[in-house]
């Protein structure tokens, strides 16, 4: 099962459920002409312990700009998607951050990415943390951002593509 679990610096955890991971993996830039993709992260803040769970992600809309090395996510589409889930779950879901793809094995955030994350963290949300996921061709990496202070930290672990090992054995 593809699930991801990360420990936050404050003792809480981030858990990413399989359906969300599968959706993002569907946009890996494995081929030379695949464009960047992205969307928003939607999930729960648990009543019992305040831990985070990402249940859903949005996928690219035609209103987004998709290039080999750039992804511009418009508000349109993603906002409607979020609102619909929010209604369905009677408010029991939160906007928890952003994801996008990179055409590199082990992804590292670009200057544009970091600037965007910092700007996002300065906005006002009901959650005290946001997460930023980059899907590489061999690895998924997750960064944790603190709202207000704008602190960003890379989280240990992440998912590794099984293809890497299978290629070696061939």
């Amino acid at each position: 099962m593809k699930e991801l679990l990360f420990n936050l610096p404050d003792g809480r955890t981030l858990f990413i459920r399989e359906p969300a991971i599968q959706k993002m993996l569907g946009y890996q830039q494995s081929n030379e002409n695949d464009c960047e993709a992205g969307g928003i992260l939607i999930g729960r803040i648990l009543i019992e312990n305040n831990h985070f769970i990402i249940d859903e992600v949005s996928e690219p809309y035609p209103t987004d700009t998709r290039k080999r090395h750039r992804f511009i996510r418009s508000q349109k589409g993603h906002q409607e998607y979020f609102n619909a889930l929010w209604e369905e779950y009677e408010g029991r879901c939160f906007y928890l951050g952003e994801w996008h793809t990179h055409p590199e094995k082990v992804p590292l955030p670009s200057t544009v990415d970091r600037r965007g994350w910092r700007e996002n963290l300065s906005l006002l949300y009901e959650t005290d943390s946001l997460f930023f996921i980059i899907v590489g061709t061999e690895k998924i990496k997750v960064w944790y951002g603190k709202c207000g202070t704008g602190e960003i930290a890379c989280m240990e672990g992440g998912w590794e593509n099984e293809r890497k090992t299978s290629k070696k054995t061939i």
Binding site: R70, R73, G91, Y95, S110
Partner: peptide, 20 residues
């Protein structure tokens, strides 16, 4: 699943974002 999560007051207003 949703019942185990906290309730938010209002739906978040999303920014548009740029990544590279």
């Amino acid at each position: 699943r949703p019942m185990t999560g906290k309730r938010s007051v209002a739906p978040a207003v999303l920014p548009s974002t740029e990544s590279a």
